[in-house]
Nucleic acid binder design. Structure first.
Lengths: 206, 206
DNA sequence: CAAACTACTTACCGTTTGGTAGATTGTCAA
DNA sequence: TTGACAATCTACCAAACGGTAAGTAGTTTG
């Protein structure tokens, strides 16, 4: 599979605006995860595609706009997860498992990894507000599923919001410490973590 | 209780070098957690104590040295936790609980919070190496306790390293999302999270 | 008192970085 | 062919920041 950079230069000079922007955003997300936002200069990003720094300003209004666009793409996945889990049949426990797996999968993309590792202190005020609002949707959506699990007795009594925050952050951190190529794949690690949590809040036979 | 800033100016002009440095490091740690490392200029830190920026260079050789000193103080706590848990009696499960609680307590200090939230991408190469090495000690120490719990049958079969990483990161994240003054204290939140994990990996009666 | 030292100060420097102005090149439609 | 537009370039700027040079109060010591 050709790298993002190779695919960029294979595009014609004109047209393909959306595709090129997507490649730039994905490479930016990769660099932000790898080195951090402040350690990634726009000239670094431009160099990766062998274009000049001002050329980036055709695809984004500012550095913060790059971040905002990345967050927007990533949070769309999260919105979708919440929307889908609402329509899923089954017990609260089963649906929570499905939602957690979906989140783990979305996490394993450039945008997902960036959303998981980026520090809100690097956001502008407007971007921070947007991020907070969309993050709330995910948290509330998942906590709701746990509450249903408690009601239908598939899960024990617990603090749904704390469970969700703990699980999401434990999964997010995988992006920081897990390096592919080892004994366990990203999916396997995610599955393990979900398993510990579900077991931890599962209803117990008396 | 007087703030760090107030305590600084109450000291005499001379003497009290160690105390003053400690206050500066703690305030730096607070700012790093609140705004991030790159968003905290040394002049910001100096302003908090109403001193000039070069005055800071009496207490640290560089900005990275400030970070390194903070990390050193925080990792001393972690070393102590590992050393103490090795000498503790009881099952693996009981000892893991104690170690996790001790970590949660150390987390609720300026240096602990900083260690938990700071991004390694902001470290210099030397500081990163130091951090990686001391972090390993904590991870290995805790994983070892879980392995003993599996052997003594107080814990079920699981992946000790993944459990430790998931738990520590779930706890670290509390620093980012928990705001004191709500319904639950820091300690209560930590206790909840530990409980989910211990239940998640506890041995089951057949 | 005077030397020596601690704990600062003001003024400054070099570098990096996000962002802009304005010219230029390639492409397509009329 | 030519006008219009998309895409990109070179050159540049202002601001911020880490860090340094050199000098100066206050304090202790002989």
């Amino acid at each position: 599979m050709p790298s993002l950079v190779e695919r960029f230069s294979s595009y014609p000079r004109q047209g393909c605006f959306d595709e090129k922007r997507d490649l730039i955003l994905r490479e930016a997300a990769r660099l932000f995860v790898e080195r951090g936002v402040h350690e990634t200069a726009l000239s670094d990003l431009a160099d990766r595609f062998s274009i000049s720094k001002p050329a980036l300003y055709h695809y984004a209004r500012s550095k913060d706009d790059i971040i905002a666009q990345i967050l927007h793409k990533a949070s769309e996945d999260n919105r979708r997860i919440v929307a889908e889990v609402r329509q899923l049949p089954g017990t609260g426990r089963e649906r929570f498992l499905m939602a957690a797996r979906a989140y783990g999968k979305a996490l394993n993309t450039e945008f997902g990894r960036c959303l998981a590792t980026i520090q809100p202190s690097t956001f502008s005020k407007a971007t921070l507000e947007l991020h907070t609002r969309t993050h709330r949707i995910l948290l509330d959506g998942l906590a709701e599923v746990i509450e249903e699990g408690i009601r239908d007795k598939s899960l024990r009594r617990c603090q749904p919001k704390i469970v969700v925050l703990a699980l999401l952050n434990a999964m997010n951190a995988v992006v920081r410490w897990h390096r592919p190529g080892g004994a366990l794949s990203h999916e396997a690690v995610i599955e393990e973590i979900i398993d510990y949590f579900i077991e931890g809040i599962a209803a117990r036979p008396k």
